[in-house]
């Protein structure tokens, strides 16, 4: 049984077609890179899976059920920008997540914060952009979800922190779960990917095992990406 299924999924904004007839089946237990240039439709696809946008046609199933309360219970989503209320303190946010998500592990969240030297009593508005991103990642990764969807999780942090964040993701996700990571920074995440999806002009351009693709083309995923999406 696939964890996530997209059938003939299309989405347009006005007259602009952003996603065109997407068909996808994503299994459990995989780390998948959702890769594509700017405006290719990555974020739109992610928003559709999270129910933040409605498709014009087609359907999305998570654990064979349509997007709704049940899918939201099992998806842990990290958007590309901050979605937290800056007037709240970190410990208030932990309580907030714990109130709404049954799979949220409070203890784990506090442990991760301690490792990152973040004071749980601090207000978000007093933190730097990078710190806020870390808090958001801690909250998202402290859930025992079936599917983690991370939209540009390392975009706003320095290269030294990137490795730490990737390590945090790898060591904290539920091993039976899948992770979809959308990013431009392919070389940084290449080593952790099991599968890759290349998305171009709103269509799935390529979907396969990362190792197979590397062996087939004799190049790294980063190099394949640069070649395929050359301007």
């Amino acid at each position: 049984m696939s964890l996530l299924t997209c059938h003939n999924l299309s989405k347009s904004y006005g007259k602009t077609l952003v996603l065109n007839d997407i068909n996808l089946e994503i299994p459990s237990g995989k780390i998948i890179g959702l890769l594509g240039p700017n405006g290719s439709g990555k974020t739109t696809l992610i928003k559709l899976i999270n129910g933040l946008l409605m498709p014009n046609s087609g359907e999305i199933l998570i654990n064979m059920k349509p997007v709704g309360i049940n899918s939201k219970k099992v998806i842990s989503y990290l958007p590309e920008h901050s979605y937290l209320n800056f007037n709240m303190k970190v410990n208030e946010l932990i309580q907030y997540f714990s109130d709404f998500y049954k799979d949220f592990d409070k203890e784990k969240a506090y442990q991760l914060l301690k490792k990152l030297n973040i004071n749980a009593k601090d207000k978000l508005s007093a933190m730097s952009k990078g710190m806020k991103e870390k808090v958001q990642l801690v909250l998202v990764m402290s859930r025992k979800a079936d599917l983690y969807i991370l939209d540009e999780p390392i975009g706003g942090v320095d290269p030294a922190t990137r490795d730490y964040i990737l390590d945090t993701i790898l060591t904290n996700f539920n091993k039976e779960a899948s992770i979809i990571i959308s990013t431009h920074l392919i070389s940084d995440i290449e080593k952790i990917l099991d599968e890759v999806i290349f998305i171009k002009n709103g269509q799935i351009y390529l979907y396969g095992e990362a190792d197979e693709l590397r062996a087939q083309k004799g190049k790294s995923i980063d190099e394949i990406f640069r070649e395929e999406f050359k301007c």
């Binding site: 933040l52 309360i69 939201k72 958007p79 979605y83 709404f100 998500y101």
Partner: peptide, 13 residues
């Protein structure tokens, strides 16, 4: 607003 991304991904009707 941006907060809506969290509100609407909570398992709430």
């Amino acid at each position: 607003s941006n907060e809506g991304y969290l509100t609407h991904t909570l398992p709430v009707s």
